[in-house]
């Protein structure tokens, strides 16, 4: 019965192609762009708090702009903007940068919430001990704030994972696009999409476990 709608041979055939697409595009973009957005998000969040007002509001404006426009539009804009000057640019690099910057604006909000959850007494104790600002951030505020932020950063990473099919807008075929192509060729989509879904799950699950371990490690 199942065999009528699900062809195991097709699934076996699709698997290696999809896995390669996953490793070479989806995973690569997600990992590199996540790292980029985790770092940039923190920079934005600290900037919003530390910068003088005249620098703070343009940053705020930029972050809101990026957060409130869709990824496909940003991909197209940046890609065709760059292509004018550098026709041979690697679209994958554009993809990483756009995804990294886009998600950094969400992560900045998460960091901000984490930083704001720190009671004012912690800042005051740091002032009373004359700790310099850099030390206050590094030793007192961030270790507490990031612990509160971590679950949310994990969620954004998983969300980014699932947004990677948008890369097709700049002609980068990641796993889901490959699955659709494969399905189109064989006149049956269910096998290739099932495999793609399982590969996603197999990659997301260890990520979630890893995040939970990291949260435990940061407990005190």
């Amino acid at each position: 019965m199942l065999a009528a709608i699900f062809d195991w041979n097709l699934a076996v055939e699709a698997f290696p192609q999809l896995l390669v697409a996953f490793l070479k595009v989806t995973l690569l973009v997600t990992v590199v762009a996540s790292l980029l957005s985790i770092i940039l998000g923190l920079v934005w969040a600290i900037g919003l708090r530390q910068l003088p007002a005249w620098l703070g509001w343009p940053l705020r404006l930029f972050l809101d702009f990026v957060r409130m426009t869709p990824i496909p539009v940003q991909l197209l804009f940046v890609f065709y903007g760059v292509v004018v000057f550098r026709p041979r640019v690697d679209a994958l690099i554009i993809g990483v940068i756009v995804f990294g910057v886009h998600y950094s604006t969400y992560m900045a909000e998460s960091y901000r919430a984490g930083i704001e959850s720190i009671r004012s007494g912690q800042w005051e104790a740091a002032t009373a001990l004359s700790l310099p600002a850099t030390r206050t951030w590094r030793a007192v505020i961030l270790p507490q704030a990031i612990r509160n932020t971590l679950p949310s950063l994990g969620n954004w990473t998983i969300a980014m994972f699932k947004d990677t099919p948008y890369l097709i807008f700049i002609h980068v075929a990641e796993m889901v696009t490959r699955a659709r192509e494969f399905g189109g060729m064989k006149f049956s989509y269910i096998e290739s999409f099932t495999i793609a879904g399982l590969i996603f799950l197999a990659a997301s699950y260890p990520t979630a476990v890893l995040m939970r371990k990291l949260e435990k490690k940061l407990e005190y």
Partner: peptide, 11 residues
């Protein structure tokens, strides 16, 4: 300074 709420660094 010593504060009413201690304000030790919990981490």
């Amino acid at each position: 300074m010593v504060f009413q709420q201690f304000n030790l660094f919990p981490n």
